[in-house]
Design a protein around this nucleic acid. Structure first.
Lengths: 190, 190
DNA sequence: ACGGCCATGTAACTGGTTACATGATTAC
DNA sequence: GTAATCATGTAACCAGTTACATGGCCGT
């Protein structure tokens, strides 16, 4: 039920194809909702059938045809209704932290490598979020934007994504330091 | 498949009943994996059937009997194997941030209230994590613990939970400030 | 020649959520 | 007397994942 609302939020911003949405869910949306392309296509179909979205077909000749979805009046009403309900608590699922929790029962060198990969992935996402934020700000400072800008929602969710990834990186630095110190022999610290 | 590993990690620490585990999944485990009691009971059954866990029945007279699960040799091997695979990327699902993303299309006063509730929930979880951390540390400082302590894994995952909740609170403060400034009339800021 | 991008989807499966059910004990 | 805690589960449903399929264009 919440995936619909994430889609309505994304489409309220601008009309998009399923493929477009898949990219946005890999990019900035990922910081508060994850979904695979298959989930999106399935949900878009349902939402169109229920009248929350309307689709128009764009014929292309050098590329496959595409369907651009946009939010209908019923869709806007559903989004407004959603904004009035109280949201479910955040859920986090992080396999890396399961590995870390069970550090004493696992392969330390391998967990060390996982933390490094995780840190790289966070750096990449952080970079993406910072770019999007720069696009939203344009020439303005944060202060100027906050006083007058009109994409406050995306600004705030990006800020949350940015602080999340910064903390991921800082935590990884701490964890790698602790492992290097406590297990100097059973892992290679390049 | 990952819920199994979260259960193995939790049970490697100490033998527990399903009910116990449900409490731990509401508490400290929630910071990296969420699961409902029903999921746990179902998964515990399967894991016992597959030989990853063994259960012993404890008869009680003032309370219902309970089954305490512990990790078998096969379970330990599975956990070691898991620590060697590369973990799937973190997934986050946060309905509040969907509401914030769609701020321009929703009810600002109601979203404001949701952010406040979310901040309260974060404060409560933060408090819980800090207490658990204090239990792990005992009389030692972080420095002393990091040099010699033996529950490094849980220490590190708690640190991640603590920084996550602190950032939730700081973000909520920012967001509430922005809303109060930009929408002074359509919400009540008590 | 090969991989990646554009663009859509189907089918089969696994995992997660919600509602319900039981029943004694303890705390306010 | 009311709610919370202890302790287990079933049934039905809904959401998420994985693997596969198609096919032309573009860059190296």
């Amino acid at each position: 039920m919440a995936l619909r609302n994430a889609l309505l939020a994304a489409l309220a911003d601008r009309e998009s194809s399923g493929y477009d949405l898949a990219k946005r869910f890999r990019g900035s949306v990922a910081n508060f909702w994850t979904a695979t392309p298959q989930q999106l296509y399935r949900e878009l179909e349902k939402m169109e059938a229920e009248g929350l979205l309307s689709a128009r077909l764009i014929k292309q000749d050098k590329r496959p045809d595409k369907r651009l979805f946009s939010v209908t009046e019923a869709g806007r009403a559903a989004l407004l209704g959603f904004s009035r309900r109280s949201p479910k608590p955040t859920t986090v699922r992080d396999e890396l932290l399961i590995q870390v929790e069970a550090l004493a029962h696992g392969d330390v060198a391998s967990v060390h490598a996982s933390i490094r990969e995780h840190r790289e992935a966070s750096r990449a996402r952080l970079h993406g979020y910072e770019q999007r934020l720069a696009e939203i700000l344009g020439e303005r400072t944060d202060e100027e934007f906050l006083a007058t800008g009109n994409r406050l929602g995306p600004y705030l969710t990006l800020q949350r994504g940015i602080s999340f990834e910064r903390e991921n990186i800082a935590w990884a630095d701490l964890a790698l330091g602790v492992l290097a110190r406590r297990f100097p022999d059973d892992s290679r610290y390049a």
